[in-house]
Design a protein around this nucleic acid. Sequence first.
DNA 1: CTACCGCTCTGGTAACTACCACTAGACAAA
DNA 2: TTTGTCTAGTGGTAGTTACCAGAGCGGTAG
Lengths: 246, 246
Amino acid sequence: MPDIVNPEDITPRYYQLANILRERITSGELPPQRPIPSERQMEEIYSVSRTTIRQALDLLERQGYVYREHGRGTFVSPQKLQKPISELTSFSEDMKRRGIEPGQKILEIGLAVPPEKVCRHLELSHPHPPILRIHRLRLGDGTPMGLQTSYYVMPDGNDISVEELESYGSIYRLLQEKFHIIPTEADETLEVALATPAEAALLQIKAGSPLLLSERITYSQNRRVFEFVKILYRGDRYTYTAKLIR
Amino acid sequence: MPDIVNPEDITPRYYQLANILRERITSGELPPQRPIPSERQMEEIYSVSRTTIRQALDLLERQGYVYREHGRGTFVSPQKLQKPISELTSFSEDMKRRGIEPGQKILEIGLAVPPEKVCRHLELSHPHPPILRIHRLRLGDGTPMGLQTSYYVMPDGNDISVEELESYGSIYRLLQEKFHIIPTEADETLEVALATPAEAALLQIKAGSPLLLSERITYSQNRRVFEFVKILYRGDRYTYTAKLIR
DNA sequence: CTACCGCTCTGGTAACTACCACTAGACAAA
DNA sequence: TTTGTCTAGTGGTAGTTACCAGAGCGGTAG
């Protein structure tokens, strides 16, 4: 087991400790429903203060790996699937976590005038000059899973050119490196929809088939909207999961 | 403004402080996008330690009222709608929050043998003796919104009788007062489905209409499963919303 | 046998101290 | 003007100490 160190290291100790404990839990070394060492015991074991231990446990508790009972102890959660609490993930991460190989086929990429609904969500005036729009088919294990349309707005009216995007490869890398934008939270809505003939053709299903429609507005560190994403998932291939608390 | 006190008081100081700050935010006294007093200033203002202040701010940050920027300060979130992070709510609470008057019509209530899928989710053997099942129509502003089927299991094989349930009025009150079960988290899945003729008739829609199918497994304080709920929402009347973080 | 007390374990709250990392503005140097 | 450096202020991490409150167990008085 790696020691917890600090010098020449940027990751906080409580974070390292959380990683160690998470590993001991997921490996099965600390079995579900059983108490883990008490906070005062861990002071000895890991040579860190109780403050640090409690920060690590706070993290693991929020992530759903452990639960605490006052006066009794801290216990490993019995969950089979360690599912994070409504975590903000990209389509690719989402698929990988489900054991499905993600893929995509870009249908169109360029500047487009955002429709009224998109302007409202992105807090833009309407009509508004063209902004970056990406239209693509999302694949799971090689076959169509969903149809995605995303719009992006940059701070101070800056725009992304298609050439720039291509040189970076990933939008999220470009956003982070050039504009220092990191996605931190999002509001998502889900409803049902029926496939139009065009959508059906791309998704390789019959027109009128039921779809799961997801619309997401993503915010950066300083709570600025920067992305609007609409995804139409095939109803027969996609299930949405969430963890609810309190 | 009330002082923060401790003697003869069971609510923690950090909780009181969070309430005070939340009030100052929601009342508009602390406007969005503007910094609130720094942690060191608040030590003076409220006569509590920085430890306590940080605990209060942690709470408010998780609840989405403020966000922090290292080296800059703590700021009031610009949110129009203070939406909780995937909060575990009942159908009634959910509807009230949307400004819709909830209602229900109980279709059937009694003991029933749980189907295999339900047994698996409730961690029961299959086949299993009958357990409590409630089948009801959920209404919004008087018209059908969804069709709900719930199954309940009690600790140590205890069962709830229909008479008992009727004397308590609410299942959740009975669970809390008799079995000390308080729902704390849940796993939810959402997918699309098509209405069968029977379902369509109850929901007053055409057979084959698209529905949003929600299945929820609810856990109590000690992470024990106690409830399985399946709700079929009318696709034309219901939208699911969630807040994603990180 | 039962009921109660008290000890000791657990996590929860709180204060105080110290230092680190980041930000932004002031100010000097190029 | 531009560029870099310094510095004061901000939140972030970490250790230490102290006491409170719930849980569980054993012993004792009834």
